[in-house]
Amino acid sequence: MAHATDTSTGTTRRDFLMLATGAAGAVGLGAVVIPLISQLAPDAQTIAAGAPIDVDLAPIAEGQAIKLFWRGKLIFVRHRTKKEIDEAKAVDIATLRDPQTDEQRTKPGHEPFLIIYGNCTHLGCVPLGNAPGDPKGDFDGWFCPCHGSHYDSSGRIRKGPAPLNLPVPPYAFTADTKIKIG
């Protein structure tokens, strides 16, 4: 078989064509895979639904809690009692699985209001503890019925399989009893 051989280097034009074709094929394949994977991500409509929302906290009486949705995710807003705040502050954070002080989880001057995501950080169930009569767990906060995680009155994980505290969503007080989430 006669090859068009460049004998001085030992490589042939056929080798070069093989590599170049392979490289072009790999790039092409990669380019095709991008849209196939990217379409799985949240679409424009879903992202647009994540615009900030305003919440009036005034109707929430002390000891009450409400649920609301932002970006399709559940959020708890709890108006804590003095006892609950004191309990949350009394904890030695060195003993916590996910160490955070109560101050880091609330806004200064607005300690009674705890605003946190309402899905357990274990596998996403909604912990009980908002409605009167709900079990609140061993730490006066929330109890997740699915796999038994206990959260304290600051929404911090204290017992059970969940690895993290209930996260605090981005929000700011726009007035004394008004917040903007997002």
């Binding site: 799985l40 949240p42 879903t46 995710k73």
Partner: peptide, 9 residues
């Protein structure tokens, strides 16, 4: 998880 959901939940 976000890619499985196609959203935030």
């Amino acid at each position: 998880v976000t890619f499985l959901w196609g959203g935030y939940s």
